[in-house]
Simulated assay, not measured.
Amino acid sequence: MQHHTTQALVEYWNAIRGDRPAPRRSEIEPRDIKRLLPYVFILERQDHWSFRFRLAGTGLCNAYGTEFRRQNMLGLWQDECHTNMTHLLNDVTGSAAAGVLEYTAETGEGRQVSFEMVLLPLAQDNGALTRIIGAAVPLENPAWLGDQMLTRQWIDRIQLIDPEQMPKSTAAALAPRIARQVPPRIHAGIPSLAARRQRLNAERPYLRLIKSEVPNTGTVPGKVFES
């Protein structure tokens, strides 16, 4: 993981879950991660093909120029990227794995920006893994971001992480560092943001899939498949 926001969310989630496959949704305390919230979202798994946004942070919505609430995450991808995201989201909820991906989003005018996204399972009180908490953060902050809608996106790299191999910490120990996080600020330059809902098209699908056990900011050992 490259961005401090995604790293902090993964560490917080891992600390809260303890020795369980995933923490419960009710255990996530928003004030503990308030600095991360602009780019945090929660998905609800309705079936194999539907993972709807229950909420999405204002920073993420401003970056895209659209409101994500109630949209299907899988509707943001097409073709090969749609297939790969379907597998990834079902791996996260099916096997309590942590998903990390890098992707590129593009405006209608051809301007591009890179994002990093993490996907982490959340459990119901009965133990069922039906929710995902995640974050998607731009890896750079160009001046035009937020003034133009992002209309297409494609996956560059996917990593599936075994949480059992993650180093452990405590939420209390992480709190001071998370409180110091300063997420990028995106200017909401597009009017009527809540009314603008446009499907994104992955017109240039490219995937590099890495399965690993230990998160690493450098080269991760594992099996690599390229398309």
Rank of each mutant, 00 (worst) to 15 (best):
M1T: 04
M1E: 05
Q2A: 07
Q2I: 12
H3C: 08
H4S: 05
T5G: 07
T5W: 01
T5N: 12
Q7A: 11
Q7M: 09
V10N: 00
Y12P: 02
Y12E: 06
Y12Q: 04
Y12R: 04
W13P: 04
W13V: 07
A15K: 01
G18W: 06
G18M: 10
G18E: 06
D19T: 11
R20H: 12
R24H: 15
S26F: 12
I28M: 14
E29M: 10
E29K: 12
P30G: 02
P30F: 04
R31Q: 15
R31D: 12
D32S: 11
I33N: 08
K34Q: 11
L36D: 04
Y39M: 04
V40L: 08
V40C: 14
F41G: 00
I42K: 01
Q46F: 10
H48Q: 14
H48K: 10
S50I: 11
S50F: 01
S50G: 01
S50N: 11
S50P: 00
R52F: 10
R54K: 12
G57A: 09
T58S: 09
G59A: 05
L60N: 03
C61G: 03
C61H: 00
C61I: 03
N62S: 10
G65P: 07
G65C: 05
T66I: 13
F68C: 06
F68T: 00
R70S: 14
R70C: 06
L74M: 08
L76S: 14
D79Q: 13
E80F: 00
H82F: 13
T83F: 03
M85W: 02
T86Y: 00
L88T: 04
N90L: 08
D91N: 12
V92H: 06
A96T: 01
G99K: 08
L101C: 14
E106D: 05
G110Y: 09
R111E: 15
V113N: 01
S114P: 00
S114F: 09
L119S: 08
L120Q: 02
A123S: 10
G127V: 03
G127A: 03
A128Q: 14
A128W: 13
L129C: 10
G134F: 01
G134A: 06
L139H: 05
E140I: 13
P142V: 14
A143W: 08
W144F: 12
W144S: 03
G146N: 04
D147H: 14
Q148Y: 09
M149K: 04
M149W: 03
R152M: 13
Q153G: 09
W154L: 02
I155Y: 05
D156P: 01
I158S: 11
I161A: 01
E164N: 09
Q165P: 00
M166T: 03
M166D: 06
P167N: 12
P167Q: 13
S169E: 12
T170I: 04
A171L: 07
A172N: 11
A173Q: 12
L174T: 09
A175Q: 14
A175I: 02
P176S: 11
R180N: 07
Q181W: 07
P184M: 03
P184C: 06
P184F: 07
P184V: 05
A188D: 04
L193I: 09
L193R: 10
R199E: 09
N201S: 14
R204I: 01
Y206T: 11
I210M: 13
K211S: 09
K211D: 13
K211T: 13
V214F: 15
V214E: 10
P215Y: 03
G218D: 07
V220E: 15
G222R: 07
V224N: 10
E226V: 07
S227Y: 07
